[in-house]
Amino acid sequence: MHRLPPLNAVRTFEAAARLGSFVLAAAELGVSSAAVSQQVRHLEGYFGKKLFVRNGNRLSLTDAGHGIYPQTSRALGDIAAMTVRLLEGEMRTRLIVSVPFSLAECWLAPRLSELLETYPQLSVDVRVEDDPVDLARHDVDLRVSYGDYHYPSCEAIALFHDEVLPVCAPELWYRHGNKHFDLAQLHESLFIHTQWGPNYASHPTWSDWFSSEPGHHSPDPARGRRSGLSSLSVTLATLGMGVALGQKAIVQRHLDAGRLIALSARELKLGHGYCGFVPGAKQSRADVQRLIGLLRRLG
């Protein structure tokens, strides 16, 4: 083991040297001025050097004091930083994930559940918000976004490329012909149209769906049900309010549970894939990498 000076005396010296006062050092350390003076004398005795010179109320470092102060300050700063890292890690690992509204409940939540089954000590903060998000200001660890263009300062990590397919509730299917259900013959009022908003123009519409069908049926959105969220369109479909072009990532659990029926095996890809964005300083975090791996595996 390396020979070390008395560490409490070193800490007291550093405070007095930094603040230029035994009184201020005593206030910071929560001790008396006499205790500070005693610790400094103890360190001076250890080194056999005078570390401070008093000129009235003024306190200044000697040449020996100047010689040890920079290394002392750096060493105590490193110990303090190490302590914060370890204590924060012991208390809680917080994972801040930001997602679009449509993906939060049906896509992200089940995947986080699987992650937390394996790592129950994780504390997860899910933030549901539209692009763009100030990742640094809001301390976001992972942002999931549609497309790879919102965050040019971060590397885009491809997660999955979703498709849409026509779905409806079983009761609607039974009510409109069961096995003879014909989308082309369905009244326009029963089509659910997702309004993607002014910033997006790459999502498939019902017109796109019918473009390859004979007769090219094109339901009028003004005469149907309209929704501003793809997840809401799926919810309306599960309630039997119409037929939706549901994103597979959102409808799959409903299909598996029998709450929805797929009306065709034909799927249309979205214009862009979903990507993850991680600020550079957080890319090496194990919890972030575990979540990215899970999201890429499950798609």
Results as ranks from 00 to 15, higher is better:
G280F: 05
V40D: 00
S227W: 00
N8M: 12
P214S: 09
S284P: 04
C275I: 04
A35D: 07
R226L: 03
G271C: 01
R223I: 04
T12V: 12
R137W: 15
L172D: 06
G67I: 01
R94W: 10
R85D: 13
V97C: 03
N57P: 12
A81Q: 13
A237G: 01
H180K: 15
R11Y: 11
S37I: 07
L298N: 13
L19E: 01
A184P: 00
F210C: 00
S145D: 08
R92I: 05
P214C: 03
V164E: 00
C154G: 08
A265M: 14
W209L: 00
S32R: 02
I68G: 11
G271F: 01
S202P: 01
P5A: 15
D141H: 11
V23Y: 08
A17S: 09
A26F: 06
P70H: 04
L190S: 11
L24D: 11
D134H: 09
G240I: 07
E171H: 15
L116T: 09
L183R: 06
T72D: 09
A34W: 09
V99R: 04
L103S: 06
L4Y: 12
A169T: 03
H272C: 10
A222M: 11
F22G: 06
E129I: 04
Y200T: 05
R285E: 07
R285A: 12
R223C: 07
I261A: 06
K248N: 15
P120C: 11
H2I: 15
I157W: 07
P6C: 02
A109K: 14
L95H: 03
E155D: 13
L122N: 05
L115A: 11
F52P: 00
M82V: 13
Q247D: 11
F181C: 04
A81H: 09
Q283F: 06
V126P: 01
D287N: 12
E28S: 13
G228H: 08
M241T: 05
Y200H: 08
G273P: 02
S37C: 06
G240Q: 07
S189C: 12
E155K: 12
Q195G: 03
E90G: 07
P279N: 05
G48R: 09
S98L: 04
F13N: 03
L103D: 01
Q289N: 12
E88W: 08
V167E: 01
G242N: 10
Y46L: 04
S264K: 01
T93G: 08
E267L: 03
R3G: 14
G224T: 00
L29T: 00
F22I: 10
Q283P: 02
T83A: 15
S102A: 13
S37K: 08
L112K: 04
R94M: 14
E267D: 02
D287Y: 05
R296N: 12
L7D: 12
C154I: 07
V23G: 04
S32V: 05
G77H: 06
S123T: 11
A281K: 14
V10S: 08
S98F: 02
G30F: 06
V128Q: 05
G258C: 02
G56W: 01
L236S: 03
G147W: 04
V128R: 10
R92H: 08
H161A: 12
A281Y: 10
G65Y: 00
L263E: 03
N55W: 06
H180P: 05
W107C: 04
G280W: 11
L87A: 14
A17R: 02
Y151W: 08
H217A: 13
L95W: 04
V97F: 03
F191D: 00
